[in-house]
């Protein structure tokens, strides 16, 4: 396997099929480097969401090897998966907010699961909701929020614990251009702090907003590599390429 100890993610000849269906992902071999910013693009049905599921450990591959944070995820006992999931921040395409929880409680959930004391939750959660422009919706439940508001809550939840890797599936799909740009800047800020960011999108305009980003393109379950992101470590000097 062609990985190094410092790599965030290393896929080696990974394939994924659901049941007896044909493979939705085939022969994926790539490395994601710490502190890099990746866009994952591709047409609908290309396999973006399936690849993200492998990345956020919701699915095991049908074949091949996956290492994350230096650990083999294929042989990792199921009981140890939560430890690695807590190092990830995920923005799901369908938000996956807990319907009966308020915006505050949804954002606080990762911290509560990490056993952060209740007394230490209020300020960071309030600040994060304020930052995504939802300080007036702290007590709102998902059913009473617009799609954009739900998306911002989902993003706040994903980044509140400052994850080692942020995975976002179409994170700007339901927000206006101004908010989309703001969210992208949030991801960049997180990236500057050393977090690896993977954003799946089919919005080509978004790619231009982060010029130093690396692009992974999926086509019918296979990866193409227009920026050479997958073969070589990213430029190491800038804030986007830390760690190499």
């Amino acid at each position: 396997m062609n990985e190094r100890a410092g790599d965030t993610v290393n896929f080696d000849n990974v394939g994924l099929r659901y049941g007896t269906e044909p493979e939705v992902l085939s022969d994926l071999s790539f490395t994601l480097f710490p502190g890099s910013f990746y866009f994952l693009t591709g047409a609908s049905g290309a396999g973006k969401t399936s690849l993200l599921k492998l990345l956020y450990l919701a699915q095991r591959p049908s074949r091949g090897g996956i290492r994350m944070f230096g650990k083999d995820m294929i042989t990792l006992p199921r009981e140890q998966l939560p430890t690695y999931r807590r190092r990830l921040g995920v923005v799901f395409q369908d938000f996956r907010l807990v319907k009966h929880l308020t915006a505050f409680d949804n954002v606080a959930l990762p911290l509560r699961l990490a056993s952060v004391p209740e007394s230490e939750l209020q300020k960071p959660v309030d600040d994060m909701l304020d930052w995504v422009g939802l300080s007036h919706r702290v007590k709102a439940r998902p059913a009473t929020m617009s799609g954009g508001e739900q998306q911002r809550v989902a993003i706040a939840r994903a980044v509140i614990g400052r994850p080692d890797m942020l995975i976002a599936d179409e994170p700007t799909g339901n927000v206006d251009p101004e908010m989309a740009l703001k969210l992208l800047r949030l991801f960049e800020a997180l990236n500057r702090l050393g977090t690896t960011v993977v954003v799946a999108t089919h919005d080509v305009h978004l790619l231009k907003k982060v010029p130093e980003s690396l692009i992974m393109r999926l086509n019918k379950g296979r990866l193409t590599d227009p920026t050479g992101a997958l073969k070589f470590p990213p430029r190491s000097t800038g804030p986007m390429g830390g760690g190499q």
Binding site: L111, P124, M128, W131, R162, L186, E188, L193
Partner: peptide, 11 residues
């Protein structure tokens, strides 16, 4: 753009 208020210390 200000740095977002991550719960860094908590994390």
């Amino acid at each position: 753009m200000s740095t977002p208020p991550f719960a860094t210390e908590l994390a």
